[in-house]
Simulated scan of single mutants.
Amino acid sequence: MFQGSMVALVTPMDQDGNIDELSLRNLIDYHVDNQTDAIVAVGTTGESATLNHDEHCRVIRIAVEQAAGRIPVIAGTGSNSTDEAIEYTNCAKKVGADACLLVTPYYNKPTQEGLYQHYKKIAEAVNIPQLLYNVPGRTACDMLPATVKRLAEINNIIGIKEAVGEITRIRELLELANDHFAIYSGDDATALQLILLGGKGTISVTANVAPQAMHDMCHLALSGNRDEAEAINQNLMSLHQNLFVEANPIPVKWALNKMGLIPEGIRLPLTILSEQYHEIVTQAIQDQHVN
Rank of each mutant, 00 (worst) to 15 (best):
Y184D: 05
G78K: 12
V64K: 00
I280W: 05
N52T: 06
E55Q: 15
K94L: 11
I203G: 03
L9N: 07
P249Y: 06
M13Y: 01
L236A: 04
G201C: 11
T36L: 02
K200Q: 14
G114V: 12
D20S: 14
V40R: 02
L239R: 00
N178T: 05
V209A: 15
K93F: 05
L51R: 12
G69E: 12
R61H: 10
T45V: 12
A231W: 03
A284Y: 12
D187F: 05
P136K: 09
D83E: 13
L102E: 03
A247M: 09
G4W: 04
V209D: 04
D216Y: 02
V126A: 00
L268I: 09
S204L: 09
N52G: 04
Q276K: 15
L268E: 03
K161I: 11
N178P: 01
L196M: 13
V164C: 11
K120N: 09
N225I: 04
Q66Y: 03
D188H: 10
R226F: 07
A146K: 13
D54E: 15
E172L: 11
I19F: 07
P136H: 11
N134C: 01
R267E: 08
T11F: 04
A140K: 09
L115Q: 00
D187C: 08
P129Y: 03
G78W: 14
A99G: 15
D33T: 09
Q212E: 06
L101N: 10
V126H: 00
D54Q: 15
E246G: 03
L173D: 08
F244L: 06
K161P: 13
G69P: 14
T139Y: 01
Q193H: 08
N233D: 14
G186R: 05
T77M: 04
D179S: 15
G46C: 01
M6Q: 13
A99E: 02
E246S: 07
D33A: 15
D83G: 03
S79C: 14
N18Q: 13
V95L: 03
S274Q: 15
E153G: 13
P251I: 01
